[in-house]
Simulated scan of single mutants.
Amino acid sequence: MLTSAAETTRRDPLLTVRGLDAGYGKIGILHGIDLEVGAGEVVAILGPNGAGKSTLMRAISGLLPLTAGSVTFDGADLSRTTPRAAARAGLVHVIEGHRVFTQQSVIDNLMLAGYDAPRAERRARIEEALTFFPEIAAKRHERAGALSGGQQQMLVVAQGLVKRPRLLILDEPSAGLSPVLVDRVLAVAGQLRARGTAIVLVEQLVEKALALADRVYALAQGRIAMQAGAREADLPARLERAYFGEHGRVATQ
Rank of each mutant, 00 (worst) to 15 (best):
V42N: 11
V43D: 05
I45Y: 09
I45D: 07
L46E: 09
L46N: 04
A51W: 08
S54W: 10
T55C: 00
L56F: 08
L56W: 09
M57H: 03
R58A: 05
R58W: 02
S61G: 13
L64V: 03
L64Q: 11
G69V: 00
S70R: 07
T72N: 11
F73R: 09
G75F: 12
A76L: 12
R80W: 04
R84N: 13
R88C: 01
A89C: 06
G90I: 05
L91C: 11
V94Q: 09
G97N: 04
H98T: 09
H98A: 15
R99G: 05
V100C: 10
F101C: 03
T102H: 13
T102A: 13
Q103V: 05
Q103W: 10
S105R: 13
V106E: 15
V106W: 14
I107V: 11
D108M: 01
M111L: 15
A113Q: 10
D116Y: 08
D116W: 13
D116T: 11
A117E: 15
P118A: 13
R119P: 05
E121H: 07
E121L: 13
E121N: 07
I126L: 10
E127C: 02
L130G: 12
F132V: 02
P134E: 05
P134C: 04
A137Y: 11
A138N: 02
A138Q: 11
A138W: 03
H141W: 13
E142Y: 05
R143K: 06
G145I: 02
L147V: 07
S148W: 09
G149H: 04
G150K: 00
Q152N: 09
Q153R: 13
Q153I: 00
L155M: 06
V157P: 02
G160S: 06
G160N: 09
G160H: 06
L161R: 08
L161N: 08
L161E: 10
V162Q: 13
K163I: 00
R164Q: 15
R166H: 15
R166Y: 14
I169P: 10
L170M: 10
L170Y: 03
L170I: 00
P173S: 01
